[in-house]
Design a binder for these strands. Structure first.
Lengths: 333, 333
DNA sequence: CGCAACATTGAAAACGCTTTCAAGTCAAAG
DNA sequence: CTTTGACTTGAAAGCGTTTTCAATGTTGCG
């Protein structure tokens, strides 16, 4: 009843050659006489032979699949990177094992281990924080690991990012240039390196450059959800803020809509600038000004870098920094 | 230089037992004397032995990974399903190989083949159209295939969906009840079954039930993008439509924003109702009324169904229909 | 025509694990 | 003290490829 699978052995027999020869033609090895190649190809076609990738993986120690750890596919920022990753992966004949981590350290470690057990040829990690434990796991992995749109303070792993500090500083400076003195810093969990080591640093830098003193009452730490942003309005108003830099687009949309719904005019009375330049920025009204990041490219470049690493090619620069920009839309003056 | 991998053989030697026994303890086989189990476990821990899933897959003919074909991870509707799929997959110890198809038939077939080559234990397909060729491939697959949020007119494959015809009919009826006579039907490519065989059918049904005659000048076929929706305004106005049913949220956001930007008041002068109830509906202003679908659950249930199929359990119903609803927000009266 | 050099091929050993089957162990039962 | 049946264990045969190494065929040239 079970469908019979045809193996390389069957092909060899039918074509009256050895398995080695069949293997050669399947893998495009040039050391095969054209006539034999043709004969084998015909049999392969006739028998509808499909090489078993698992067996191939065991024998060759290469699985042509890479693991991708993503906080949440549902998040526009990360799914954009994921798309870039998958496209390039496909281009280089790799497949992607995608797993959501919810940025949960324990889950990340566990997932990483199952990926390694599955003998992936490489790993791309996305997440706002690289814990010590995770870093250790990365080190013992024999498959190369590259971080995409994710920072590691230790810079131990190859990665591709933008210059978050500079980008945020520029965004905040923009707000300052518009005359704002009390600028809120709204971000996700402050225990994530991306927030406290990069974004906050850029925020402080901009303030300092402008001679504005830092006030931690203007720092709002929440989780990355629309709702969280939406319910921030009272606090924002109470703190006397007239503008905000927000670390995530969905969160920013929440902040902005919360403000608007409460009757605060954006950007008239309150300016908002966000970080990720996902589609969302264009959908909301007013459209959100944002730091621009080459989302797709961050993923694509990360994957490309990974292919080089997997191929043992020497790469000139392990940590690549892509250019960012500032896109003025309608949530700032 | 290359890190040495420790195999089941090493463990067997160190623990002075056979590979079979090690295999048993690793797999939780109860037929092992507690004392031996303990001894083996200690060695495993000491050597930091990690079973090689590829070898395991070859020997057992099970890879504990399932293939997932998705039009585009970047699309909120499908990424929500994907999240549901992955969560349940993880719960059942499966991993997901995720590949974007762009709804391109050729790519879908190709991807399906590489998935099968990788010996996935099952496949979940998402896409708005199942071509004949694809259907053939599904049939020859020895791994079970289930469709998630995707229809196949032939109903040849197990699937989980909502009742699109009824849902759309109800949405359109709602528009009719508000006094609209000229209701636009805005959808993606009409050659996709989901559009012409389901949504359009529901649309026509609602019209018919209300005694309104069908006018194909009110049917707008575009692609599923925000921009496409946005640029539809002139045509919509020209056709004299006062309301629209839209088949995709991002597209709907475009339609609505295009209207608003052109000075048309939504919902005052023009009502819009959309289909997928993704996060987007809450982000835009006015918030969009929508058919509600249990997105996450569609994915989750599909994956659960797949686990049963992979396990050869008998399932009572191959095609499961989940409940839908109608959520009135602010883009309808 | 003989030989070196190169092109083709096949045999068989991995790859790391699961699984079948037979054998060995041991305690309870007779 | 044997027998029986339930437990435990190990040997070895796969699983479907890749890959090494040696063998065999060919071709070009002096």
């Amino acid at each position: 009843m079970e469908k019979q699978t045809v193996t390389i052995y069957d092909v060899a027999r039918e074509a009256a050659v050895s398995m080695a020869t069949v293997s050669r033609v399947v893998n495009g090895n040039p050391n095969v006489k054209p006539a034999t190649r043709k004969k084998v190809l015909e049999v392969i076609d006739r028998l509808d032979y499909r090489p078993n990738a698992v067996a191939r993986g065991l024998a060759s120690k290469k699985t042509t699949t890479v693991g991708v750890i993503i906080p949440d596919v549902t998040n526009a920022y990360f799914s954009s990177l994921a798309r870039g990753i998958d496209d390039i992966a496909m281009m280089y004949k790799y497949n992607i094992i995608l797993t959501n981590s919810d940025e949960n350290g324990g889950k990340e470690v566990q997932v990483l281990n199952t990926l390694m057990a599955k003998q992936v040829d490489g790993i791309i990690f996305m997440g706002n924080q690289v814990t010590d434990e995770l870093r250790e796991e990365f080190k013992r992995s024999k498959a190369p690991v590259v971080l995409a749109g994710s920072v590691d303070a230790e810079k131990a792993q190859p990665s591709v990012n933008i210059d978050y500090v500079a980008a945020v500083a520029e965004a905040v400076k923009n707000l300052i240039d518009h005359g704002n003195q009390k600028i809120a810093f709204v971000s996700g969990p402050m225990d994530q390196a991306i927030n406290h080591d990069y974004r906050l640093k850029g925020y402080k830098k901009a303030l300092k450059d402008a001679g504005i003193s830092y006030d931690d009452k203007l720092v709002f730490e929440t989780d990355y959800t629309y709702k969280a942003g939406q319910s921030l309005e009272p606090a924002l108003t109470a703190a006397g803020a007239t503008a905000a830099f927000v670390g995530d687009d969905e969160l920013a949309a929440g902040v902005m809509n919360g403000l608007t719904d409460a009757g605060v005019d954006v950007p008239g009375e309150f300016e908002v600038i966000t970080s990720n330049d996902t589609k969302l920025t264009e959908l909301v009204r007013p459209k959100m000004s944002s730091i621009t990041q080459p989302l797709y490219d961050i993923g694509a470049v990360a994957m490309r870098l990974l292919t080089k690493l997997m191929n043992n090619e020497t790469v000139d620069e392990n940590t690549v920094i892509l250019p960012y920009g500032l896109m003025k839309r309608s949530s700032t003056k």
